[in-house]
Design a binder for these strands. Sequence first.
DNA 1: ACGGTGACGCTCA
DNA 2: TTGAGCGCCACCG
Length: 110
Amino acid sequence: MNRSNKKKVLTSWEKKVLRLVSYIPEGRVTTYKELAGAAGDPLAARAAGNALNKNPYSPLVPCHRVVKSDGAIGGFAGGRAVKKKWLEREGVPVKKGKVVGVEKIMYKYK
DNA sequence: ACGGTGACGCTCA
DNA sequence: TTGAGCGCCACCG
């Protein structure tokens, strides 16, 4: 069956979030908070995660490059293990489910 | 309009 | 350092 039966309707805000994520270069990561802040609401980190969960553009939008503020992997539609793999593949060191030196490679929108 | 949900963040013990 | 609790926001039914 077609997995894309459910047409995911993205709001303007969600689209903005996804767009910002697409700007993250390979080998870099950002945080949900930073992302939300760039989208206009620094306190909407949670909502930002929700937007990523709806991401219908799998590889197009590198949602796996978005992690928690403390460097934790966070969540991923395909499983945290997969997310971790993607990060390591792109040169992002991950140790015990957390990005090593996330502050150094973190992509900031300011 | 209201209440519940979730890929979060921060504080406290 | 790790875990539990509370607060934040946008989205959905």
